[in-house]
Design a protein around this nucleic acid. Structure first.
Length: 420
RNA sequence: CGGGGCGUGGUGUAACGGCUAACAUGUCCGCUUUGGGAGCGGGAGACUCCGGGUUCGAAUCCCGGCGCCCCGACCA
């Protein structure tokens, strides 16, 4: 893609109403636009990152036998009344509510247990229908008392929510165990595996414990107690002798330290709470009816994106891991002569033919501005084409992570090999 | 929702209660220039968040809203 086609522009200064690193950089680089507190639009560059992340999640979940669907945001009050979650005082008033012209009350979904359990009543009848796993990428609305930290906690955000429908606790637990691995794969592929810990946390009203996936990050809201060697972590709020005894662990076996962390995902056992309330049941081999056993599994996609920015950014801007970068290569053209134009076009075409996604800075601006923008946007591989490189019959290549290293002169073939 | 801070061209800032609200940056036009946010000249762009009040006079003081950020309490 030619950079001159991008409608977004970079800025030198961050707006003063953004303090968080992720929002400052993402706005400066033209990834997002703030609409109001906790509500951001994703511009073309930002959307590409969101899509990279969702592609990773979708791939991992599909491999695990899950099926994607898309539910509605608008929710009928009656379904939520059955589980007593229509209340306006729920979680500090998390609902956004509205109404039809006729006056019927509606809610904008902040999660989808009720909605999906209700759908499944049409499709699950027999033990032969179970287990089933369904997920979606869907915009959630949460009337947070306090939106904060840029895209780390918004009032409207894209969430991947997965639900399992199992015959019983054992069947659910098999899947739950499997999802622990799948989640770690997702975070590893997104580039934050090293920084992310599966974390013991209290389970809320459904079960005694659940797991959160906490990514160590200064901008985080939680405190993580963890052992980096043995890869065990407990949310500080839940760190107690009781936890150690419940998990049959000896506290002295570990060398714990603390760090701030951000919750990028979580997995919950729901049990029969929603299926009972909504009358979602199946008939077993003997003709007896049982409530379906459920679990839910969430990942906040923008939050994950924001965490990645927070973790890897340096003083010059964003540094994307390759897997989620909007483009693999930033082709920076220095100079505007016919020879440079032709050479840049040639390089661009060859890279694209090698299935490499390229942002080609074809703008007629000064080199200094182009390099600064390139660092800010944070694409992992930078190639420079100029009169100098044409003369040398090589290209200049630099990784975004090499903050101070000089660029090296390489042939296109070497660069392509490097990237692939 | 409690506490604190802040609202001035697109963005970042300035302006004692007193002149046509200033500067930088961005943007537009022209020329020049092309390896780390270049230079010169010219132009556009602001009901100083909104509504009241005090005053001869309000961006500035007072009251009330609204918005934004931060700290808490709660959540992907």
């Amino acid at each position: 893609m030619k950079q001159s086609h991008l409608f977004s522009k970079t800025r030198k200064d961050a707006p003063k109403d953004e303090v968080s690193k992720n929002a400052q950089l993402l706005i400066r680089a033209g990834y997002i636009h703030k609409e109001m507190a906790g509500v951001y639009s994703f511009l073309p560059l930002g959307l590409r990152v969101i899509e990279k992340i969702t592609d990773i999640i979708r791939d991992e979940l599909n491999k695990a036998g899950c099926q994607e669907l898309k539910m509605t945001t608008l929710q009928r009050k009656e379904i939520w009344e059955q589980t007593d979650r229509w209340r306006n005082d729920l979680d500090g008033g998390i609902w956004f509510k509205t109404e039809l012209n006729g006056g019927s009350e509606l809610g904008l979904a902040f999660t989808h247990e009720e909605a999906l359990a209700n759908i499944m009543k049409d499709h699950i009848n027999s033990y032969k229908d179970l287990p089933k796993y369904a997920y979606q990428f869907q915009t959630k609305f949460r009337n947070e008392l306090r939106a904060k930290s840029g895209i780390l906690r918004g009032r409207e955000f894209l969430m991947k929510d997965l639900y399992d429908f199992s015959k019983n606790k054992e069947e659910h637990e098999d899947f739950y165990e499997k999802m622990k691995g799948v989640y770690m794969n997702i975070f590893t592929r997104a580039g934050i595996g090293e920084n992310t810990y599966m974390t013991i946390s209290s389970g809320g009203s459904f079960s005694k414990y659940s797991y959160e996936f906490q990514t160590i990050c200064e901008a985080g809201e939680d405190i993580l107690v963890y052992d980096p060697e043995k890869k065990i972590a407990i949310n500080k709020g839940d760190f107690s002798d009781e936890v150690f005894s419940d998990f049959d662990l000896n506290k002295d076996d570990y060398n714990f330290q603390e760090a701030k962390s951000i919750e990028v995902g979580d997995i919950y056992t729901l049990g029969e709470k929603y299926s009972s309330a909504l009358d979602l049941k199946y008939t077993d081999e003997k003709g007896e009816e049982h409530p379906v056993y459920m679990g839910s599994y969430g990942i906040g996609v923008p939050r994950l994106m924001g965490a990645i920015v927070e973790i890897f950014a340096d003083s010059n801007g964003i540094v994307w891991p390759e897997s989620v970068s909007p483009f693999a290569v930033h082709l920076v053209q220095v100079g505007d002569s016919d020879t440079v134009n032709a050479e840049a076009e040639k390089i661009y075409t060859e890279l694209v033919e090698n299935n490499i996604e390229v942002l080609w800075d074809d703008r007629d601006s000064r080199p200094g501005q182009k390099f600064a923008d390139s660092d800010l946007i944070g694409i992992p591989h930078r190639i420079v084409v100029s009169e100098k490189t044409i003369e040398a019959e090589k290209l200049e290549y630099k990784k975004r992570t090499d903050q101070n290293g000089d660029a090296s002169m390489m042939s296109l073939e070497e660069i392509v090999k490097n990237i692939q």
